[in-house]
Write a protein that binds this DNA or RNA. Structure first.
Lengths: 145, 145
DNA sequence: CTGCTACAGTCTCTTAAAGGAACTCAAGGA
DNA sequence: TCCTTGAGTTCCTTTAAGAGACTGTAGCAG
């Protein structure tokens, strides 16, 4: 499908994949840790890790003479974590309820507890769902060239 | 799970849900349209639409005397589209290839073709996966109160 | 050197979800 | 009166997920 959303979902749209990425991001990088933390079946965890490695989102590094491996985010994978940060923001706003957010971000640049905000990479003003028109781009299905 | 990412995935993490949201966002709001455009089975489309309505992401509005309905985004749903915009950005950057992005955004505020960028809602500086520390928040599992 | 343990997976079997395609139902319209 | 359309249901087949036991490698304790 000529849709960047659908393509992105082909990479991390399967059940568990975003949670695996989150865990790897916060430092849970080994098979046993992931399995124990998520409660995912070992079979599916194997499938997901292989898929994420194939897609260039994770890399598999040995960390011992023995056959022991840990998974680390590539640059491509780290940029996917942006997505998780936006997810966290939405969940905090709409689903956290009375108790408030379970996790907070402290921004290195200003040192404050903060959340992400979407802005235009051209003018810097806020840019959200209601602030844009959609136009066909060069990669649209059926375009010339 | 006391994790806003997991909670958000409970709302739109099922297969097809993000694509349904995208279609509704761009104006494909009726059952038959969605079914034809996505190629999703009617059974699953029914389940997903019901779930999204239950979660307050979509509303079901009659548009005729006959039993005909269209689905529209609530405010909660519109904010979820932010997530889709970030997904599109990642897909454009990492998966679009030679052809380039299939869709472009024109930002109302500046009139330019642009993409979203994540910034700190406190200081306005870029805020991405590598720019934050994680701290336990008030809603963390096992917190006092 | 032998046996024990830990990590990182496979394998197999059962249960749940998705796909496909036909069927239902209400209300206009020819 | 019958036909058509939109919005689902129902039933059956195929695929994916879950649970849990099994394998294999290499260090280490005795």
């Amino acid at each position: 499908m000529a849709c960047s959303i659908a393509r992105t979902l082909d990479v991390i749209g399967e059940p568990w994949s975003p949670l695996i990425l989150r865990d790897v991001w916060v430092g849970m990088s080994r098979f046993e840790q992931l399995q124990a933390d998520l409660g995912i079946s070992r079979k599916v965890l194997t499938e997901r890790l292989n898929h994420l490695v194939e897609q260039g989102v994770l890399e598999r590094h040995p960390y011992d003479q023995r056959p022991r491996y840990e998974y680390v985010l590539t640059r491509k994978g780290l940029e996917l974590v942006d997505l998780l940060m936006v997810m966290k923001g939405w969940g905090d706003r709409w689903l956290a309820g009375e108790a408030g957010p379970p996790v907070l971000y402290r921004h290195h640049a200003c040192g404050k507890i903060a959340d992400v905000e979407l802005r235009c990479d051209h003018c810097g003003e806020p840019m959200r769902a209601g602030d844009v028109d959609l136009l066909p781009g060069p990669g649209v299905a059926g375009s010339a060239t």
